[in-house]
Design a protein around this nucleic acid. Structure first.
Lengths: 192, 192
DNA sequence: GTCTATAGCGCGATAGAC
DNA sequence: GTCTATCGCGCTATAGAC
């Protein structure tokens, strides 16, 4: 078992903390304690907090959309694809030490305190997700698996908002079980 | 025009700031500057920050649910009631200086940094909303206005999560227009 | 690449005059 | 009820030894 390098450990810890308490409540001291390194050493890898978060998003986004596109390009039915896509969000809720919301959901809440390059990265994540959902919904309509009124763009927004909001709500009350129930309900609705 | 008392001005300002930047990013100094009073004077009205937030929620929650129940008890159709209910959320997005999300949505994101009495107040808000939605959805099903698969409890969670998430997402990208479009799509779906 | 030490600032909160 | 003044703390960030 090869050990993870310090830089990666810092990023992993920072991400977990942001998903748990938010960016504004997370400090270099928290990371320091968790990684077992001094605050100054973190500044060697990431001079400023903004550097750290930017690096975090640069790492996370491609990874997330690689998973995402693997689902979209799979030979499964649209219904199964949608279920798997929603599973990507459920995973953040149930993985690790629990109590975690979506990384970009947390940053979205703190958006007005973010510097502009970070804001763009968060907004782009939202747009890229909705683009994927539009494709998936369109596909499902063509195969006849999905039957819902209105246009696919609006429906994509309904679904994405529900997933982001659902993570925050069920983290506070109900947990993964409730989140799953919500997703299942959504799928029933999309199938018409 | 009678002037608003200091205590109320502090609460109003604090609420606006929390909805904009979050509780962790809001300081007594910010309130001080906005109200035109010194930090120490705020401590006279609210000794600690927790006192302030608790007072804020104690004031907001009854007010919100009074509006909410007025909608539910009105003689309108279930569809119109649902539209008005969603309008309560849209209102926070478009009122005042813009850029505001739901008060409880922001606190939900920061939940893990809240002290327990505040956590309970936030969770209770979520539950009370979903209770109202269940009533409304049940009503609509009985009149035949609403036709959707699954149970009303799950559907209530879908709607509430969508509203909370939608406020965060559309605040970042799209604004009120997108929020409205999302709500309209939801209503189409609920009508079946 | 990690350390000790510290600068400089903003925070919540308190004491005491008016 | 509001003020000035200040305390003690935690934060991001930097300097410089090892």
């Amino acid at each position: 078992m090869k050990t993870t390098d310090t830089r990666t450990q810092i990023l992993d810890t920072a991400q977990e903390l942001i998903q748990k308490v938010g960016l504004n409540a997370m400090s270099y001291a928290d990371i320091s304690a968790a990684v077992g390194i001094r605050k100054a050493s973190i500044h060697y890898h990431f001079p400023t907090k903004d550097n750290l978060v930017a690096a975090l998003l640069d790492r996370h986004s491609p990874c997330f959309f690689r998973f995402c596109d693997a689902i979209l390009d799979s030979p499964e039915s649209p219904e199964v694809k949608l279920r798997h896509y929603c599973g990507l969000f459920e995973a953040t809720l149930s993985s690790g030490k629990q109590d975690k919301a979506c990384l970009y959901g947390m940053l979205g809440a703190e958006m007005k305190t973010l510097n502009s390059p970070l804001i763009s990265q968060v907004v782009q994540f939202y747009r890229d997700n909705q683009t994927r959902l539009v494709q998936l919904l369109q596909q499902g309509r063509e195969t006849g698996d999905f039957k819902f009124p209105g246009n696919v763009e609006s429906m994509a927004m309904v679904i994405f908002s529900m997933l982001e909001g659902g993570l925050l709500i069920t983290r506070a009350d109900g947990g993964v079980a409730q989140f799953r129930e919500m997703v299942e309900q959504l799928i029933q609705v999309v199938k018409g």
